[in-house]
Amino acid sequence: MAEIKKQGAKVIYATLIIALFFTVFPLPEWLRPFRPEWVTLTIIYWCLALPSRVNIGIAWIMGLTVDVLTGTLLGQHALAMAIVAFFTVRLHKQIRVYPLWQQSLSVFTLVALGQLLVVWIRGIAGDSPDSWLYWGPSITSALIWPVVFLFLRDIRRKFRVS
């Protein structure tokens, strides 16, 4: 393990920060429920590509950051993202070899799982969203996954992140 050089940590963090940026980027009101879960997508990508470097720990910290950034209950996104990362790392060998559209389906399931956890927690805290639009991000995240995947793969290859 020691021979494999770890490089490109900065690149990984840069992509995550850009994802945070998109998470709060102002959108028109009608488009807001359909904002893809950028941070979850980026975490899923890095968990697939480099599961030994990006896994539940970073996912948890990113989730906590999202909680503060969007003003939600401290720990709800942290929990959801840690669990999503856990399953992604568990299944990364299978998901990696899927064709892109099938990966999209897996991503849909993973993001929806995260959202399910969040809606649960919100329900317990007495702040449950009352519209089916709540599930919009799962669908848009799955739709945009191929683009995110190809983009991040290019970045990973260009900067030789390993």
């Binding site: 539940i56 720990g75 709800q76 929990l79 840690a82 790392v89």
Partner: peptide
């Protein structure tokens, strides 16, 4: 990893 996962979950629940 399993242990860390359990710890993180516990920690999130406590935080919330």
């Amino acid at each position: 990893a399993g242990l860390r996962f359990a710890l993180l979950i516990f920690f999130s629940l406590a935080l919330m």
